[in-house]
Design a protein around this nucleic acid. Structure first.
Length: 513
RNA sequence: GGCGGAGUAGCUCAGUCGGUUAGAGCAGUGGAAUCAUAAUCCAUGUGUCGGGGGUUCGAAUCCCUCCUCCGCUACCA
């Protein structure tokens, strides 16, 4: 039976348009999903939007729309982003979908049945105008020293009826989980943070609100809606059909790919909810870092220049994907700039891989009647090339076992370099005059190396890799990792070669004076 | 404040259960080649391994201390 693999991004909060952070998470998760598929696994890749909550309600009101109208419009931008970036999701879930409501309400009922939900009081500094609670330390002092919200609106100490989840009962169980399954939270330094957080003691969690109504109704009540995380997190279950038993086809999830800012919710609240409901826990949560524009956190004022779709349009989807995956160590923060994208894409995609394919294929076109030439008895250099190539997949898989995407790509591109060195060392253009048969053999082996490199590069640069495989006349059903050993067949007619990864120019924003 | 992490070549970083001349990529410099997207290949680093002290035959790697930066420290998501 085919091994199954279930992977998710966090669902995005559409109170604004997608930004680079959304793009980065989608791209990284897509890489993993594609990689697993090519390994022969059956993959379910879930992404989507988290559409409830106060901020959405407020943003909708500001736009003069109902929340439902507002999110239906915003979600379009997120789907468009996924489309442009070639995100191969299997389902795009929206928390406003009816089956999601059924899922969360079922989850709630189970948690309630295990005695972990009780009615209590939530109190804090509440601003009627903002409809929001603020923490004591967020407040600012007014002219007369009175307390004001960060928005400058008056606040008053307010007590509201709220259902609570008995999170405090899960401290030991969570610590035991981290102990027994240290891979549950990755990368490792996040595990340490969570251990220390949980060790410090857990308070019960308010999980309903009566102060607004844009949310999933709490079963058996008329005035409570579920509060944020219980609603949002359970998308991972509703996305695969829960509460229908068929959810077990995919659950437990193999990995939730999330931002480092929401590690706590995924590695503390979420497992506690699931334990309470008697549902299996996901196998792992991976908190990736942030991508920073020129080393700074992106600000709204930097504007559309840094929007992911703008970058993709200017430099190419593959180029943007490759840059982010290769340049940012997965799990750490990284910096991006147009300069860096151009440099990296040119060096690795245009110069190394693209040009390797082009120099080899154009020689085949000109000197071998456009047909795959014949390999002759391998020379030591040929054997060394074969050996090196045959090791790449398992090396990449080692890295991917720890989700070290950048290391996997580093491994692959080291081999692209080796292949260029092989080609230059064998000098087929010189052999053309002295030993045409040897030339054909070098071209064959290089072309087959490109075939293997392209197969392995598919998760990062799906479009370009597909074009390379087209140029090599590799059938669609021979493009997964188990086809790496299916050598090119001599005599196969090849299409006319053309460049796959164009060399990029940096697009200068403006010229002074 | 508490807990944790980091400071290594111009840039981004790898390397630390102590051990021959501290590595890679990019950038730079020199050379080769001309099949190719002026791409490629080869060669090339006088680095206080944050400062100081200590342990040791020997420390980037262990200990102490100081400096700097960063993360976590719950109900916005």
């Amino acid at each position: 039976m085919t091994e199954r693999y279930y992977i998710t991004t966090a669902i995005n909060y559409p109170n604004g348009r997608p930004h680079m952070g959304h793009a980065y998470e989608a791209i990284a998760t897509d890489f993993i999903a594609r990689f697993r598929r090519l390994e022969g696994r059956e993959v379910f890749f879930l992404t989507g939007t988290d559409e409830h909550g106060l901020k959405i309600a407020q943003a909708a009101r500001a736009a003069g729309q109902s929340p439902r109208e507002y999110v239906s419009e915003m979600v379009h931008h997120f789907k468009e982003m996924d489309e442009v970036l070639n995100i191969s999701y299997d389902r795009f879930i929206r928390t406003t979908e009816p089956d999601h409501y059924a899922c969360v309400q079922d989850l709630w009922t189970r948690m309630e049945a295990s005695g972990d939900i009780y009615l209590g009081k939530y109190e804090g500094w509440y601003s009627v105008r903002d409809e929001a609670y603020y923490d004591e330390k967020e407040l600012i002092a007014g002219d007369d020293g009175e307390k004001l919200s960060p928005e400058g609106t008056p606040v008053e100490w307010t007590v509201e009826e709220s259902y609570f989840f008995r999170l405090s009962a899960y401290q030991e169980k969570l610590l035991a989980l981290y102990e027994a399954q240290p891979d549950f939270i990755q990368p490792a330094h996040r595990l340490n943070e969570m251990k220390s957080f949980v060790s410090g003691g857990l308070r019960d969690l308010s999980i309903s609100r009566t102060s607004f109504d844009w949310g999933v109704p709490v079963p058996g009540t008329t005035d409570h809606v579920m509060y944020v995380w219980l609603d949002a997190l359970s998308n991972y279950l509703s996305g695969v059909g829960y509460p229908d038993e068929s959810y077990r086809d995919w659950w437990p999830c193999d990995v939730h790919v999330i931002g480092k800012d929401v590690v706590r919710f995924h590695s503390v609240y979420w497992p506690a909810f699931l334990m309470s409901a008697g549902i299996e826990l996901p196998k792992a949560v991976f908190g990736h870092g942030f991508v920073l524009w020129d080393g700074k956190k992106m600000s709204k004022s930097s504007g559309n220049v840094v929007e992911p779709l703008g970058l993709a349009a200017r430099y190419g989807t593959d180029q943007l994907r490759y840059f982010l995956l290769r340049e940012v160590p997965f799990g750490h923060d990284g910096a991006y700039s147009e300069d860096a994208i151009v440099t990296r894409a040119n060096a690795d995609l245009a110069n190394d891989l693209g040009n390797l394919a082009q120099r080899c294929l154009s020689m085949i076109a000109k000197n071998c009647e456009g047909r795959v030439p014949e390999p002759s008895t391998p020379t030591p250099a040929d054997k060394a090339l074969d050996m090196a190539l045959s090791d790449i997949l398992s090396e990449m898989q080692d890295h991917m076992g720890r989700l070290q995407i950048h290391s996997a790509l580093e491994t692959l591109w080291r081999q692209v370099g080796e292949t260029n060195a092989y080609f230059a060392g064998r000098e087929p253009w010189a052999l053309k005059k002295t030993d045409p048969e040897a030339m054909g053999s070098v071209l064959y082996r290089t072309a087959d190396a490109v075939r293997q490199l392209a197969i392995l590069a598919q998760p990062a640069v799906p479009e370009g890799a597909a074009k390379l495989l087209d140029l090599l006349a590799v059938p669609e059903n021979e493009r997964s990792f188990d086809a790496l050993g299916n050598k090119l067949r001599p005599g196969t007619e090849l299409p006319a070669p053309k460049g796959v990864f164009p060399r990029l120019e940096r697009q200068t924003e403006e010229t002074a004076s």
